[in-house]
């Protein structure tokens, strides 16, 4: 097969979305990943390129409230959407709850995967708030961690589950 080795970039498009409460508006090629926009002009560091094929969870962000891998979302798809990352969620009370549980239970070592884990857990807690039955262990089944063996994470989830069943 012949490969076009010097592709001409296609016309950039204007994409506007809300990132952690700020409006992001920029010209970008439509197939660019949300992850690249976030790490580029978005100056976000919490979403990380662990695999670029949606199979590790290190780039998990909330897209209109749903936890998704940022590497599988294309720029054209985020126009008009709300995107929240660990940085933006840091002030939210449910994120704080997750953060405290992760820290207290030592659910992290290198911490590279942890913001993605935290975002998945926040998403799970919010779905529970909406009355859905969500098993938090299932909510992080797509977040790979290579350091901890998930022991601390299981304990943090037990704490979160206990707290949320009390309220």
């Amino acid at each position: 097969m012949t490969r076009q080795t010097q592709p001409e970039p296609c016309a950039p498009e204007h994409v506007t979305f809300e990132l952690n409460g700020d409006v992001i508006s920029q010209w970008v090629s439509p197939a660019t990943t949300l992850l690249d926009i976030l790490r580029g002009s978005g100056r976000i560091t919490s979403a990380r390129a662990g695999c670029r094929i949606g199979r590790c969870g290190a780039c998990t962000v909330l897209l209109n409230g749903q936890a998704v891998p940022g590497c599988l979302v294309m720029a054209w798809q985020v126009s008009g959407c709300t995107v929240e990352t660990a940085e933006g969620l840091a002030e939210a009370s449910d994120f704080a709850q997750v953060r405290d549980a992760l820290a207290t239970e030592s659910a992290l070592q290198c911490g590279y995967c942890t913001p993605g884990v935290a975002v998945s857990l926040v998403s799970g807690l919010r779905q529970q708030q909406n009355g859905d039955v969500v098993d938090l262990e299932e909510a992080v089944a797509g977040n790979l961690c290579r350091c901890t063996g998930y022991g601390g994470l299981k304990r943090a989830i037990a704490v979160l589950t206990e707290t949320s069943s009390e309220t």
Binding site: A103, T104, G111, A118, G152
Partner: peptide, 21 residues
Amino acid sequence: KPQPGMAETSVLERIEGRFGY
């Protein structure tokens, strides 16, 4: 038995993705 970890600033920074890898 699991014991509470030190809530070092670095731990919180890691969780929030601000740790600067």
